[in-house]
Nucleic acid binder design. Structure first.
Lengths: 197, 197
DNA sequence: TCCTTTGTTGAGTGATCGTTCAAGAAGACG
DNA sequence: CGTCTTCTTGAACGATCACTCAACAAAGGA
């Protein structure tokens, strides 16, 4: 097995470099030249290993989703016993992660494909679908909380899901605009004051 | 006065066309070719009338800010007698304007320069400065409300300003993701439930 | 009428974009 | 050892990008 000349670079490390570039600049504003330089390889190696730019971006988005910075939402939803604790944890972890200087600010899924040429519309659609899937995960968690009696019958799970998604998108953009950990924590605290009792 | 060959196109109408394109796609994803086609002119006429692409964008952003869709925030802050009424109106007007199908979804200032090449960083900075100026306008209005006794002394004007700005940024992005007027109104209503009493 | 000024036109500038190709290199297999 | 397969290298592809130039056109002023 493993015939042919072996790859001379670390594929995972190269993918991580691509994640950081796409995260920082977005899909179209990141050129193949910048990618190859950051990944330490030549264009032909990139195309042999990852396909084309769109396939590389999709793989980068998936790697981001598996990383701690991209999976904290799913973890909180799965691990916390109540919806209230889950959303409190989600917003506070977002407030800590989004402005963390060890990586680009904000969320890749939210901000990496907002300005896109028609020929790259599929990339925008790809991330939009991820966002809308997260929205539905929020709603179903809140619907379960309502069935459990944690949320009152008067609460509107879909409206609350949109609300928390909007909070996270706003926090991501403000992190990209330079907001601090404290400023984002204040937003999270303020946002949780609306929790239906 | 008015010497030389007169302009054969309506400068304001051309600028409006540019506003809509930049609003829809963002700065870099809008090419000069698309602009000249939408504006009904040739490249040389565009450069003679507006300078270069960056100057055209800046002028388009200013025109957007003067339009009803871009000035409703300032109007509400100036016209409403209380801060609470001002922010209620702002969020509900955003919920109505952002998804309005008669123009591109969301807010140009929020979404037109999020993914940008280093060589166009000044455009991203330009819009970021507008957003941060709006943030300060929010804060000073809330600070005035606190001085008037409308807001309790325990309230944090800066934190509330960040909070409302985040709500609007989230609403803009969700409008671009296809959220309806009703979904955005639900967000606005939920957001106003946190108003300190 | 002729000159000056400004706008329009169509063609074309160099730079950069994503992508590919031919040639050589490095391993496994017979 | 040779052969097959895969990867790397350096150069190049056509397309598109923002932008400009030379020639012509349309107005006012003298």
């Amino acid at each position: 097995m493993a015939r042919g000349r072996p790859r001379t670079f670390d594929r995972d490390a190269a993918l991580t470099a691509a994640v950081h570039l796409f995260w920082d600049r977005g899909y179209e504003a990141t050129s193949i030249g910048e990618l190859t330089e950051a990944m330490g390889i030549r264009p032909a190696s990139l195309y042999a290993a990852f396909g084309d730019k769109k396939a590389l971006f999709r793989e980068a988005a998936e790697a981001y989703g598996r990383s701690r910075d991209g999976s904290f939402v799913a973890s909180a939803l799965a691990e916390e016993p109540t919806a209230r604790r889950a959303f409190t944890r989600i917003l506070h972890e977002a407030a800590a992660i989004y402005p963390d200087p060890s990586h680009p600010p904000g969320c890749l899924v939210i901000s990496a494909a907002t300005n896109v040429t028609p020929q790259d519309a599929e990339i925008a659609t790809f991330l939009r679908d991820v966002r809308n899937a997260n929205l539905e995960r929020f709603e179903s968690r809140l619907r379960a909380a309502q069935a459990d009696g944690e949320l009152p019958a008067t609460a509107d799970p879909k409206a609350l899901a949109h609300y928390f998604a909007a909070i996270m998108q706003g926090m991501s953009q403000q992190a990209r605009d330079g907001a601090t950990h404290k400023a984002l924590t204040d937003i999270a605290d303020q946002a949780m004051r609306t929790w239906p009792q």
